[in-house]
Design a protein around this nucleic acid. Structure first.
Length: 567
RNA sequence: CGGGAUGUAGCGCAGUCUGGUAGCGUAUCACGCUGGGGGUGUGGUGGUCGCUGGUUCGAGUCCAGUCAUCCCGACCA
């Protein structure tokens, strides 16, 4: 491609409201342009990057014998009613009616459609396993799209679904997909971490997220400093406490604690470590039908992890409860305790099993109990509720956990029979029994990957594409096209590289040196061959975008030098 | 969905408080000079000031409504 004919509208200024570097540079360098909230047009450069990433995904999927399909974007609402997700997905599902008044939704993910394709077509265990995927536009009517391509409403996702006759076979495929996803991200040149995750609304288990490490990431990850363990904070675990504070000595008793409502005040009032205080978090759990108040109890040294709490309560959502609502139930905020609680659901953190010497609210204004043993509570429901903290111990080794930020670019998990059961998709096993498919699902955000590459690879001048993702690997820049020698050499090199199959662009615009350099740096071609003043000495320069260093190469050896650079 | 802000030329912004002929930077067009870090001179093109209604002799400016976009939060396979 010749720059003089290319549609690459670069700009000095970022669109107003753009805050993320990837959003700023992808816009300024002419890769994408916003159409409406969460909707983007891909210009030629953006489309090239998209196709490069897709090609790598396709290549790795083929190595795994996953087969590409393409499902219709518009999907009948009946399928969503059948699986029960039309309510669960809520307003994110964009619904509309056709001329015959039939209800449709724009596909936000395609479990239903994929199961629909397979059911009644795959009818025997002999036809399994099967892994089908597509790379296609998805639409989710996000409440608040933001950060450019990072969280758009319309986006490109690779979504794959596998069908198995046994859990064992699902495990095998799951591991194969994890390995394939790892290779994809490695080939793209990204620094990433595979972490344990919550399965979210889609249901299932064995959930893992692929996180590109970047400070601007929306997810917080807990990662071990000495082993491979990493987890989204929503699912992160820790080792049992390594140093347990000295237990306070006291008889069971009720103490007057006027105005002592917070854990901090309580701990200093009794001069004990917060570890020995009982924290109560009150939430209203929302269920598919109805709602109720739930007390979550943790050690005072811990905080409630809401996603874990939602799962423990089996709720769709948890919302805050006002002090007045608590009082209306007959409890006093700041003095709630687990003893003799009736008519309110209580869930205890696992860490409180067998806990002793605890100080907790007495359910009476200005009173706390001391030296309470959790064992006195009958039929207590326990679950994991705590949120890990930095410096907690790794659950798998003797290492220590620290926090880092990540961009979720992939999510794989074992669905089991959730969807095949809901949609009645069954096959005959070896025993002649009709059983539901055991499924896995594997998603990767292709358009989000574009943003992730730039979030991880940019500087103050602009984008720094990795070799596998660059729209053009080499930019041959003619410094002054009015100089015949420069122009001729540039043309010659351009043609030679192009004939050799290199993704190359020739900057033959009638612009000044500085202007072209700024564009080259903003767009972020990995290598720019500068055919300019050095030509007087029989040389050209090669600008390495990553380091911004310029190397000098004899003009007769440029082709070989470039070929060697790009491997 | 709660809270906050902003809509003026292709893009980025000032002007609005205090009503009186639409501005700046950049981009763009023509011609000239220049040619190693977004160069420069001269002359142009380009706007029903988001939309609707109201107040006024007169509204970009004041009032009401509405739509859109962005930010914080809730939400997010």
């Amino acid at each position: 491609m010749r720059f003089s004919k290319a549609f690459i509208p670069t700009a000095k200024e970022a669109p107003s409201g753009a805050v993320l570097d990837s959003h700023i540079f992808l816009s300024r360098a002419g890769f994408v342009v916003q159409v409406a909230s969460g909707l983007y047009n891909y210009l030629p450069l953006g489309k090239r990057v998209l196709k490069k990433i897709e090609a790598i995904i396709n290549d790795e999927m083929q190595r795994c014998d996953a087969q590409e399909v393409e499902l219709s974007f518009v999907t009948p609402a009946e399928l969503w009613q059948e699986s029960g997700r039309i309510e669960k997905f809520g307003k994110e599902l964009l619904r509309f009616r056709d001329r015959k008044d039939n209800l449709f939704v724009l596909g936000p993910t395609h479990e239903e459609m994929m199961v629909n394709i397979v059911r009644n077509r795959v009818t025997s265990y002999k036809q399994l396993p099967l892994n089908l995927y597509q790379i296609k536009t998805k639409f989710r009517d996000e409440a608040r799209p933001r950060f450019g391509l990072m969280r758009a409403r319309e986006f490109v996702m690779k979504d794959g679904y596998s069908f198995h006759a046994s859990n064992k076979d699902l495990d095998r495929e799951f591991n194969a997909m994890e390995a394939a996803y790892k290779r994809i991200l490695e080939r793209l040149g990204l620094e990433f971490r595979i972490v344990e995750a919550d399965s979210g609304a889609i249901g299932g288990s064995g959930s893992k997220e692929l996180m590109v490490l970047a400070n601007s990431g929306e997810d917080t990850l807990a990662v071990c400093d000495s082993c491979e363990y990493g987890a989204n904070i929503e699912a992160a675990k820790r080792s049992p406490h390594r140093e347990i504070p000295e237990a306070p000595e006291a008889e069971f008793n009720k103490f007057k604690t006027p105005g002592i409502k917070s854990i901090e005040d309580l701990a200093s009032f009794f001069r004990v470590d917060p570890y020995y205080t009982l924290k109560t978090v009150v939430k209203r759990a929302i269920y598919e039908e109805g709602d109720e108040i739930v007390f979550f109890f943790l050690r005072g040294s811990d905080d409630l992890q809401e996603v874990k709490a939602v799962n423990a309560a089996g709720a769709l959502d948890l919302v805050d409860v006002s002090e007045d609502e608590i009082k209306a139930l007959g409890f006093i905020p700041g003095f709630i305790g687990p003893l003799d609680v009736k008519n309110v659901k209580c869930i205890f953190d696992n860490d409180l099993k067998d806990a002793e010497h605890m100080i907790c609210g007495a359910n009476e204004e200005d009173f706390h109990f001391v030296n309470v043993a959790m064992s006195v509570i009958e039929d207590a429901q326990f679950a994991e509720l705590y949120e890990v903290k930095e410096a907690d111990g790794c659950p798998h080794c003797s290492g220590t956990l620290s926090f880092t930020k990540g961009i979720e670019v992939g999510h794989i998990f074992k669905l089991g029979t959730t969807y095949s059961k809901a949609l009645g998709a069954e096959f005959l096993n070896e025993k002649g029994q009709s059983v539901p498919f055991i499924m896995g699902t594997y998603g990767m955000g292709v358009s989000r990957l574009i943003a992730a590459v730039i979030e991880q690879h940019h500087d103050e001048k602009g984008c720094i594409w990795t070799p596998a993702t660059a729209p053009y690997l080499v930019n041959v820049m003619v410094s002054n096209i009015k100089d015949d020698d420069q122009l001729q050499l540039g043309e010659k090199l351009y043609n030679r590289l192009r004939d050799a199959g290199v993704d190359v662009i020739l900057d033959d615009r009638k612009e000044r040196f500085g202007f072209k350099m700024k564009d080259a740096e903003l767009i972020g071609f990995p290598f720019t061959v500068i055919v300019g003043k050095e030509l007087q000495n029989g040389n050209v320069q090669i600008l390495h975008r990553q380091t911004l260093e310029k190397s000098v190469v004899a003009k007769d050896k440029v082709f070989e030098a470039v070929m060697e650079l790009i491997g």
